[in-house]
Design a binder for these strands. Structure first.
Length: 310
DNA sequence: AAGACGAAAGTGGTTGA
DNA sequence: TCAACAACTTTCGTCTT
């Protein structure tokens, strides 16, 4: 179970002399050197930033300056082991007041988190996603709550958004449709919150790779491994021909799989492929046509066709 | 008769003024 | 904030197997 809240004692040596390394997002014990906590999500993806904004251009100054994640106030601990005797009573009152707030807020967060993580677990098991993805989603969600991003949004939709982001970061992308079905949240709502929380938390997402979908679609269609790996090859070529940018990754994956199935004589109808990929036949046709044009695959298909006549 | 193909009109989201 | 735009969908008619 993911226990939330900040570690304040080193589990190893019991020292309270902890040091927060913001760059690495780790909490380190100064006495024994143990890395006590590295709960911060790793934002250190080196990837081109597509959404070059002007709205908050003040922060796009080159160096990765993501690690400002710990928001002041909510995440930080109001000291516990301070020597109160040296404070005036006024200061002491203030101190207690702050701690009370801290307590209220953190219990509110705790409650929310408990519910949310239960919901997350439900959706994850419905989609049969690996544990690592669940953990990632939980961390993202936790950060989102701490930043107050859930306000005005339903908890479920934020969970779904966090999970969607986690899936993509782990390169096991699910489509918005699948997330939608599993969570009962509307597709566009998930997309909205997904975009919102990734922007607010500055999580960088690699544009999802069509190849990541192949395995799943392939098994859903009961295609042979050869067909599957061929589809990936086709995708590679398509990438270098710049057929993939700007297109929906699922459509491309579906088309590649469709072509590959044709070549290997494991014909599936466009309808079938379209269904498992969650796109329409038309989209498959368009991608399919582009693939044929650019990748000179016609002859291979003809070869198969003439063979099957015999 | 089913599947493949393509045209036309509609939808939701992004972008740039 | 709005209009242009690209990708994708829906629908429907025609062609192919």
């Amino acid at each position: 179970m993911l226990k939330h809240g900040f570690v304040r004692k080193c589990p190893e040596c019991g020292s309270v002399n902890l040091f927060l390394n913001k760059e690495k997002g780790e909490v380190i014990c100064k006495d024994c050197g143990l890395v006590v906590d590295d709960k911060m999500v790793d934002f250190g993806q080196e990837w081109r930033d597509f959404d070059s904004d002007k709205s908050d251009s003040r922060r796009r100054s080159g160096a990765p300056m993501t690690y400002t994640q710990y928001d002041q106030g909510l995440g930080t601990e109001v000291g516990r082991s301070a020597d109160l005797s040296q404070f005036s009573s006024k200061a002491r009152n203030k101190f207690f007041r702050l701690r009370k707030w801290q307590y209220r807020i953190s219990t509110a967060i705790e409650r929310n988190l408990k519910l949310a993580l239960a919901e997350l677990k439900r959706v994850v098991s419905y989609l049969k996603l690996p544990k690592s993805v669940e953990e990632e989603a939980a961390r993202i969600y936790t950060l989102a709550v701490r930043k107050g991003l859930v306000r005005g949004r339903s908890m479920e939709s934020v969970v779904a958004g966090a999970l969607y982001a986690a899936c993509r970061r782990h390169e096991v992308p699910r489509t918005l449709d699948e997330l939608s079905e599993a969570s009962g949240i509307e597709k566009k709502e998930i997309g909205r919150t997904y975009r919102f929380i990734t922007r607010e938390l500055e999580i960088k997402i690699i544009p999802s790779n069509p190849a990541d979908y192949i395995a799943r679609f392939s098994s859903a269609l009961k295609l042979s491994p050869e067909t599957q790996s061929r589809a990936v090859e086709i995708l590679d070529k398509a990438q270098s021909e710049e057929l993939t940018s700007g297109r929906g990754p699922t459509g491309i994956a579906a088309a590649a799989l469709y072509v590959s199935a044709l070549i290997h004589g494991e014909k599936r109808t466009q309808r079938e492929v379209a269904d498992v990929a969650g796109v329409t036949e038309v989209t498959i046709r368009n991608r399919y046509k582009e693939l044929l044009d650019k990748l000179k695959l016609e002859k291979e298909i003809k070869k198969v066709k003439s063979k099957s006549k015999e």
